[in-house]
Structures are given as C-alpha cells and as structure tokens.
C-alpha cells in the first residue's frame, strides 16, 4: 500500500543469502545521505551487520518486548488445558508445574485468556533491542534479536511500528531484510512500497530469486532485480528476468576488489564503477517513487 505522505519504503531482499543485500543497502543509503536525510533499517535481526559499514555513535537504544504467559503456581490446578490449547508447544505440563518456553511463544494470548484459573497472566519478555546510530544525514536503526530467541517476526514488526512512530518524516526508508522467503522476510518486506531483489548469476541465485519473486507477487508488492557479481556465472538470471518481464535495475560488476573492501567494512561509493551503478539505481528508484505517489 502506498504511504499517505511521500514516504518511500524500499525493502532490499533476496531469496539466497550472501547476494549483496547489505552491500547495496548501506551504499545506497550512504549515497542518498550525500544530499538528503535517509533512514536505513537493519531488519536482519538474527545477524544484523549494517552497523559495520555505517560508522556513528549509538544515540539511543529501544528495548523490545513480546508478551508471554507467566505461570502462577498459587492459582494453577494443573488441569493442562493450556498445553492442549497452545498451537506452538510453548507450554509443557511436567506433573507438578507448567513450564513456559518463552522462546517458542507466539504471543497469541490463547492460554492466558482461556485459563479458567487465570493462572497464566501475560508479562513482557525482552526479545532484543533497536539501536539508533547517527551518521550525519544517515540514521541507522539496527534491530538485534537476543541470542536464544527463535521468533524474529515479533521484533521485526516492532521495528516497523517504531519507524512509523518516530521516523515517519524520513522520505527515504531503506529496509535491509533477512534472506529467504519465510516469515521474517515477509514481515520485513510485506508493507514496503517496493522490493529490490538482489541476486547473483548462478543456479542458486536464480532458484532462490524465483522463490523471492513468487513471494513478492503473493504480497502484491512491486519489485525489481539487481544482479550482483555480474559477469561471473551465466546468463540464466538475465534471461529469466527478460522472459518474465522483470525489470533489472542494476548490475554490480564482479570485481574482487569490491569483495576485499566489503570484507574490511568499507563503503564503496568512491569506486567509480560501483558508484555509477548505485547512482543509476537511485535515479530509477526516484522515478518509481514519484510515479507511485502520483
């Protein structure tokens, strides 16, 4: 759905991991920051790494919670209904107590609402943090899930809400999304105005690109493709995009020095061949943004 203002929410996603989402997100955000305010949001909450490339001070940390039941020994009669009700096996009746697995809980409240003894009141459970990192015009929000948490979606949804509450004045919002096509990718990209699918010209890249295209179509999000490591591999990704009418918005050349510098945590906008891809991509996205906002 298009935003009411002229906010442009751009998701950078991919089926396959390691195709260059973070490379593109951080450099595109940095490019925009040369002349405008830009918000970069790291939604790869299980392994966030945008902060390696965007150097700045953490100005604020927002703790994030999900609601989980807390077992009340004084009220419980150990009937076990909660165990049967839970769709996610987050509760186990071990005879003399109910064990709650906070990491498995989807915060649906069913056990809590249906407990006839009111023995499972909901409480806040800390799942991770959102750090705010400022680097001149660029503001980075980094979502980070705590180790041992298994549910990135709740945190990703929280980050989206936080953006809408506190950073809605930012016209450019770039969401660096987790790889794959599972719940966390859907939660990251599903409400964005446009999805950039980053891929590589290999059989794996193509296979997972097709899955990501299917996901974008199911979510009814407009999308385009960026081919990274272009010049290596084969032409199958390009042919697939051409045959299916999918726009290729950029081709990042296969160049070992890009990989070397990326591995040192450097941005690459001072590299001419790379900068021209990002600059041209920005112009195309700007046209998309303007056309979407009518």
């Amino acid at each position: 759905m298009a935003q009411t203002s002229n906010v442009f929410k751009l998701a950078v996603a991919s089926g396959k991991g390691g195709t260059g989402k973070t490379l593109l997100s951080t450099n595109l955000a940095s490019f925009v920051s040369e002349f405008d305010d830009v918000l970069l949001v790291d939604l790869d909450v299980e392994e966030p790494n945008d902060s390696i490339f965007v150097k700045g001070l953490v100005s604020d940390v927002h703790p994030q919670y999900k609601m989980v039941p807390q077992w009340d020994v004084a009220r419980c009669d150990l009937c076990g209904d909660c165990v049967d009700i839970c769709n996610f096996n987050a509760l186990v009746n071990v005879g003399k107590m109910i064990v709650v697995y906070e990491n498995l809980c989807h915060s649906c409240h069913a056990c809590s609402e249906l407990c006839h003894k009111k023995a499972l009141p909901m409480k806040k459970h800390h799942v991770g943090d959102v750090s705010v990192i400022k680097s001149q015009n660029l503001t980075l929000l980094e979502g980070r899930l705590n180790v041992n948490e298994e549910q990135p979606v709740a945190l990703i949804n929280n980050v989206h809400s936080l953006v809408n509450q506190n950073w809605s004045k930012y016209k450019y919002q770039i969401f660096d999304s987790p790889p794959g096509t599972s719940c966390s990718m859907v939660a990251s990209t599903g409400k964005c105005d446009y999805i950039l699918l980053v891929t590589e010209p290999t059989p794996f890249g193509l296979n997972d690109l097709k899955l990501a295209v299917d996901a974008a179509k199911l979510m009814k999000r407009p999308f385009g493709v960026v081919i990274n490591k272009y010049g290596s591999g084969n032409k199958d990704v390009e042919e697939y995009c051409r045959d299916n009418g999918i726009e290729v918005l950029g081709k990042i050349p296969f160049d070992i020095s890009i990989a070397e510098r990326y591995s040192k945590g450097e941005l690459l906008l001072d590299k001419h061949c790379f900068r021209s891809v990002v600059s041209s991509l920005y112009n195309k996205l700007e046209n998309i943004r303007i056309s979407q906002n009518g």
Partner: peptide, 15 residues
C-alpha cells in the same frame, strides 16, 4: 507438520 516446538511436544508425550 510443526515448524517449531516439536521438541517440547514430544517431550510432553514422553513425560
């Protein structure tokens, strides 16, 4: 059919 929670579901049966 369960994506998550197979361990606790089975553990409940074992218990």
């Amino acid at each position: 059919g369960k994506a998550h929670g197979a361990g606790t579901a089975t553990a409940q049966k074992v218990f």
